[in-house]
Design a protein around this nucleic acid. Structure first.
Lengths: 186, 186
DNA sequence: ACCTGAACACCGTTCAAGT
DNA sequence: ACCTGAACACCGTTCAAGT
């Protein structure tokens, strides 16, 4: 998103344009209403042009998912820089997680949606690694309790993921950020 | 599922048959591949017969979701009866939750899937209430720490939900039941 | 009251062409 | 190398009929 973002596709970076257009469509009408044909039309190309950049529909979905995970990992990474104490970092990451889910429901829908969608390339693992590393550092400075950092990371991740999903996916569990105070801190 | 389950539809309880058939189809090929026409054929009726029992496709999905939540709430309810101490009950419920997600991925896919699906009738709320009540009782006998039982229920629910979803929805977070040991116990 | 068949406006995907 | 147009086998949904 520097200087080359104009109406230059049609003979330019169509692939990116299709991903972006698909995301808009999902945001507007949900994954269920996602249509390869409409994406083409909206992007100003033929309705079958997408097949020159993606194997099929689920391949496009996978690309959108991967783009989402990349942005997501960036957000978590950025959050860890906001402070230096371990608990502050974990808190910031948790908030960033929930925030991302709130701000980009369309991404979330694809990233964690129906299981037939490929579970992202490397960005998903990268996001998880950031959390593990933060916990590991917090243990070294004795701010966080001992234990397998991967297991602890799973616990926190699952908790925050659950909060993020339940918040908009269903409505019978009201949300409060007080929930975030859980037991991992020493 | 008593004595009336035979090949009696075609002029019988088609509605139930359609729900069951739809569930099978989802289990076999995922929600994305769910087709009203195929459901009809598989159930031995015309491909438009479903419209005599459901408004449209998402109405059928909503009915499947509700059926799933009813069964789900039953499973949680049953789990609370397995023991009398609060922690044991919570543990049993958590395991029942994860177990349900493992045993019935098709239900889960519809129940917590794409947001355009209606969030279930009363069974979802009933399931949550069972958890709140268990926590409340545990607090009265002083087995669980104090605090708003609804907030605590949210924390546990989110945790267990996260574990259940992450277990099969993505693969970058490996699972271990050790994760279940979290901070709500006094 | 419940079910069917034909019909309409859509899809995903393929493939022979176009530039 | 990248894009288009027509074509095929599907869908969801509607509606006039059938029983």
């Amino acid at each position: 998103m520097d200087a080359k973002s104009k109406k230059v596709y049609h003979h330019g970076n169509l692939r990116e344009a299709l991903i972006a257009t698909g995301l808009q469509l999902i945001a507007a009408k949900g994954v269920r209403a996602l249509t390869l044909r409409e994406i083409g039309s909206l992007a100003g190309v033929s309705r079958t042009a997408a097949y020159r950049h993606f194997e099929d529909k689920s391949d496009l979905l996978a690309a959108i998912s991967e783009a989402g995970f990349a942005q997501f990992a960036d957000a978590l990474d950025c959050a860890t820089r906001s402070t230096t104490d371990a608990f502050g970092r974990l808190n910031a990451m948790a908030l960033a997680y929930v925030q991302f889910a709130t701000d980009h429901p369309a991404y979330i829908e694809v990233m964690f949606g129906p299981s037939n969608i490929a579970p992202a390339g490397g960005s998903g693992a990268r996001a998880f690694e950031i959390l593990v590393q933060t916990i590991r550092e917090g243990q070294q400075t004795n701010e966080l309790r001992a234990g397998d950092p991967v297991l602890l990371a799973q616990a926190v991740w699952a908790q925050v993921h659950g909060i993020s999903m339940l918040r908009f996916g269903t409505d019978f569990v009201p949300f409060s950020s007080d929930v975030l105070r859980s037991g991992i801190v020493r």
